[in-house]
Simulated scan of single mutants.
Amino acid sequence: MPLDAPLNSLGLPKPPAQTRVVVAMSGGVDSSVVAAMLKDEGYDVVGVTLQLYDHGAALAKKGACCAGQDIHDARRVAEAMGFPHYVLDYENIFRDAVIEEFADAYLAGATPVPCIRCNERVKFKDLLATARDLDADCMATGHYIRRKMGAAGPELHCAADPARDQSYFLFSTTPEQLAFLRFPLGGLASKAETRALAAKYGLSVADKPDSQDICFVPNGNYAAVIEKLRPGAADPGEIVDMDGNVLGQHRGVIHYTIGQRRGIGIGGLGDPLYVVRLDPDTRRVIVGPKEALATRIIPVREINWLGDGAFDGAREHHVSVKVRSTRPPRPAILRPTGPTQAEVDLLDPETGVSPGQACVFYETGGSRILGGGWIYRDAARG
Score class of each variant (00 low, 15 high):
residue 233 A to I: 10
residue 236 P to A: 14
residue 240 V to K: 13
residue 242 M to L: 12
residue 243 D to K: 15
residue 249 Q to I: 14
residue 251 R to H: 11
residue 252 G to K: 10
residue 252 G to I: 11
residue 254 I to T: 13
residue 255 H to K: 14
residue 255 H to T: 00
residue 256 Y to N: 03
residue 257 T to Y: 09
residue 257 T to L: 01
residue 257 T to M: 01
residue 260 Q to K: 09
residue 266 I to A: 05
residue 268 G to T: 06
residue 271 D to H: 06
residue 273 L to S: 03
residue 278 L to W: 02
residue 280 P to R: 04
residue 283 R to D: 00
residue 284 R to Q: 15
residue 285 V to D: 07
residue 286 I to D: 06
residue 287 V to K: 09
residue 287 V to A: 08
residue 288 G to S: 02
residue 289 P to K: 03
residue 292 A to H: 10
residue 294 A to L: 15
residue 296 R to Q: 14
residue 301 R to E: 12
residue 302 E to T: 01
residue 304 N to P: 00
residue 304 N to V: 15
residue 304 N to C: 13
residue 306 L to D: 00
residue 306 L to A: 05
residue 307 G to P: 02
residue 308 D to Q: 14
residue 308 D to E: 15
residue 309 G to W: 03
residue 309 G to S: 09
residue 311 F to W: 07
residue 311 F to I: 10
residue 311 F to M: 11
residue 313 G to R: 09
residue 314 A to W: 07
residue 314 A to H: 14
residue 316 E to Y: 09
residue 316 E to Q: 13
residue 319 V to S: 00
residue 320 S to I: 00
residue 322 K to S: 07
residue 324 R to Y: 01
residue 328 P to L: 10
residue 328 P to C: 02
residue 329 P to L: 02
residue 332 A to G: 04
residue 332 A to L: 03
residue 335 R to A: 04
residue 336 P to H: 13
residue 342 A to M: 09
residue 343 E to P: 03
residue 343 E to D: 10
residue 346 L to M: 14
residue 346 L to W: 02
residue 349 P to E: 01
residue 350 E to G: 03
residue 351 T to L: 08
residue 353 V to C: 10
residue 356 G to S: 05
residue 357 Q to K: 15
residue 357 Q to A: 13
residue 358 A to F: 04
residue 359 C to Y: 09
residue 366 G to Y: 04
